[in-house]
Design a protein around this nucleic acid. Structure first.
Lengths: 100, 100
DNA sequence: CATTTACTTCGCCACATGGCTAAATGACGC
DNA sequence: GCGTCATTTAGCCATGTGGCGAAGTAAATG
């Protein structure tokens, strides 16, 4: 789980790459609809694939800054960071405006 | 260049996968800033990589419904389809609203 | 302190993606 | 019709991604 400093374009890169996978999009929508936070077990239970596969997807989302993780005893809670989603939304919004 | 009917989730799939690559995002922003349409040559000229590589990226964007292509004599014009970008933007906007 | 619970980390493998060069296509101008 | 211009298509190869099972770790619990 690399948490390095990123340039602006690296941020777009990580965010859009993270959003590219249907499992990761579903993780985000579900966590959001559950109030913004869920633990790893509840997230892994949503899918038929093996747990390590979910862990890997969660890493991608954390590295992209779309989720933050926090240990709570022996559970791990993943929480949505809406600022990063906002970044992607703002990029897309540029196309609704006339170009400068 | 497959132009098949897509379900809604296939549409998200194609759009977000297409947006995942920096070259493809740059194609979209540049075409937009040039008024919404550019021909293949002008797009290919933006990049250092070989032309067929650009063609391939253009295909991905067309298949995702983000660009439409049109022959104009021996040139080919690519035009942005903002409706599909709107689809992605709307998906992201869901996170700014409280979950139902 | 040994076991169970809740995950993550480690290798491994199959398939997808994105780059290339070379060859094909289709329209235009002579 | 022949060459040339604009661009795509066809194959090829290296690297990336996403799946797996097995093993590891850290906190709670008996």
């Amino acid at each position: 789980m690399k948490r390095e400093t990123q340039t602006q374009s690296d941020a777009y890169e990580a965010v859009f790459a993270a959003l590219a996978h249907p499992v990761r999009r579903r993780i985000l929508t579900t966590v959001h609809s559950e109030g913004g936070a869920m633990n790893a077990g509840a997230i892994a239970a949503m899918f038929e694939h093996a747990w390590p596969t979910t862990t890997r997807h969660l890493h991608v989302l954390v590295d992209a800054g779309l989720l933050r993780d926090e240990r709570r005893g022996r559970e791990r809670v993943y929480r949505i960071d809406r600022k990063r989603l906002e970044l992607a939304r703002a990029w897309l919004e540029g196309f609704s405006k006339d170009p400068r």
